[in-house]
């Protein structure tokens, strides 16, 4: 007997700033990583995440956009220092060919995070407006966050795809409950460790792993979730989710990410994924005497 025993990481959920196992006690083996067990989140885990998210929403939404940008930049810094570990997790998760490809994906994720950090205090210029009025008024339209948004990551790219949908939701002040790639959730779950060490307040991000077919309907039905940003999956299941979401008047945005497209930054720097989850508030303000 020689050498030390490996200490391997238990991949757990990220809910309310903590790392719980699924309350159901269930696990599953992701298709991309045979030999690894990860938590299989239940509808109660989702409910707990919603409670934590609603508690965190007010504080996150009230922060200055500039401060949210600072925090997202901090997230990028933490991602950068964990590049090697995240790349190894992408490889272990089986969603990339080799370490070099994994590293490119992580770097693209860091760059995307920096882009969103810069975007945070430019949303009002980009999505708001000043409109002419027939009368002595200024008319301003400003944007405010919608609330709790469910995010369903694509199967691949496992980390960049998750962040490409998560960041547009967070940048405007929403809170998010994200379902990681079902077949390769390891890097997505490890994002929780990055969030926990980067000033992102507890509850603002929840990361769940589990069966998309099981959790998508629950995300759609839960009345306290205000929107869904959904990487396209099975068309019939997505349509059913949209139908279920209609009962609580959720805004649903379904989008397609190409697995190879991450080499092209513009493919993931998408203001049109930010725009569905803001509310426009319009103010009339009297013009002073001229």
């Amino acid at each position: 007997m020689s050498g030390r025993i490996d200490v391997s990481k238990t991949y757990k959920l990220y809910v309310g700033g903590a790392f719980p196992r699924s309350e159901s006690g269930r696990t599953y083996t992701p298709a991309g990583a045979p030999g690894v067990n990860v938590c299989r989140a239940s509808r109660k885990d989702l409910r707990d995440a919603v409670v934590a998210a609603r508690g965190a929403f007010g504080g996150w939404a009230r922060r200055d956009a500039y401060n949210r940008g600072q925090i997202l930049y901090r997230l990028a810094e933490m991602l950068e220092t964990r590049k090697a570990a995240l790349a190894a997790e992408l490889v272990a998760g089986g969603s990339v060919a080799d370490h070099a490809e994994a590293l490119r994906e992580v770097e693209a994720t860091v760059d995307l995070c920096v882009w969103h950090a810069g975007l945070a205090d430019k949303l009002n210029p980009l999505l708001g407006s000043q409109t002419d009025a027939s009368g002595p008024f200024f008319v301003f339209s400003t944007v405010e966050p919608t609330g709790v948004i469910g995010v369903v990551a694509p199967e691949r790219p496992a980390l960049l795809g998750l962040c490409a949908l998560l960041l547009p939701v967070l940048v405007s002040g929403n809170v998010a409950i994200a379902l990681c790639s079902e077949s390769s959730p390891l890097a997505g779950l490890a994002l929780g460790e990055v969030c926990a060490s980067s000033d992102v307040p507890a509850g603002v991000v929840a990361l769940l792993s589990g069966h998309r077919a099981e959790l998508l309907a629950e995300l759609a039905k839960h009345r306290a979730i205000d929107g869904l940003l959904l990487a396209a999956g099975d068309a019939a299941a997505d349509a059913e989710a949209a139908r279920l979401a209609a009962d609580s008047v959720k805004r649903v945005r379904r989008c397609t990410l190409s697995a190879a497209g991450y080499a092209e930054p513009a493919a993931v720097r998408r203001l049109d994924w930010v725009e569905p989850f803001v509310e426009v508030k319009t103010l009339w303000h009297p013009v002073s005497a001229r």
Binding site: R47, K221, S248
Partner: peptide, 9 residues
């Protein structure tokens, strides 16, 4: 209803 509710309702 089988659906989690929204406190504001």
């Amino acid at each position: 209803t089988g659906t989690y509710q929204r406190p504001e309702d």
